[in-house]
């Protein structure tokens, strides 16, 4: 017999639907960090990230009995969280807020990498600029870039999460990256990379 931590998401959902409520705890502990990180990247606020993540898991809890196991749990929870993010952004549109998170705490992200003081400062500057550039993208491109770059979802998973064809996901990703390149250039961040002389087919 498998323990909850050994079960796949699908098995946990099945167990929950069979009345084993503790299976949901495992799903929460498995996904809450990822969801919170994604929400934070979309909204840029620690407080909102915490609230929306909590709300997303609450909604998932309420709806999990009716959840059809054709979709992945991860796609579904991302979908709920992103819908909540969109609602939040819509509510805030036109209102100006001063985020208490500005600037974000920076120490933990670089200390762990053993960066030198110079790298530390430069790294923080780059992070701030990336963050600013991503916030300038439109919502659709931002979501796709976050899900792909930071959450590591496949094109198919993103398509499932956002309810789009995979071709649209790739197009949005392409356009988002091109825009990011321009925003980063305006922010003074060079994104040059080694240009291959040739491609062997």
């Amino acid at each position: 017999m498998l323990t909850n931590s050994q079960m796949s998401d699908e098995q946990l959902v099945e167990a929950f639907q069979a009345g084993q409520v503790a299976a949901y705890d495992e799903l929460v502990s498995r996904w809450q960090s990822k969801i919170r990180g994604a929400v934070w990247r979309v909204l840029g606020s620690t407080e909102d990230a915490a609230d929306i993540t909590q709300e997303a898991f609450l909604r998932a809890f309420r709806g999990l009995n009716a959840f059809k196991r054709e979709a992945k749990f991860s796609s579904w929870i991302y979908q709920i969280a992103l819908n909540l993010c969109r609602d939040s952004l819509r509510r805030k549109k036109g209102k100006s807020y001063v985020s208490l998170d500005e600037p974000e705490p920076k120490i933990p992200t670089l200390v762990s990498k053993g960066a030198s003081p110079l790298e530390f400062t430069e790294g923080n500057q780059v992070a701030d600029r990336v963050r600013a550039a991503i916030q300038k993208l439109n919502e659709d491109q931002r979501e796709v870039i976050i899900l792909k770059e930071y959450e590591g979802l496949t094109f198919a998973e993103i398509a499932e999460t956002l309810g789009l064809p995979t071709s649209t996901v790739k197009t949005r990703l392409y356009r988002g990256l091109v825009e990011m390149k321009q925003h980063l250039a305006r922010e003074g961040v060079t994104s040059a990379s080694h240009i291959p002389d040739s491609f062997e087919s």
Binding site: S33, R36, G37, W40, R41, T46, A49, E104, P105, K106, P108, T109, G123, V126, A127, V130, R131, I134, I145, E149, Y150, Y174, L177, V178, M180, K181, L184, V189, T190, S191, A192, S193, H194, I195, P196
Partner: peptide, 20 residues
């Protein structure tokens, strides 16, 4: 190559521990 470079820069934006 440029898009690859953009990806590299994007990799420099970590989620702070305080958030997660």
């Amino acid at each position: 190559a440029e898009l690859k470079g953009v990806r590299k820069v994007l990799g420099g934006w970590d989620v702070p521990v305080a958030v997660v």
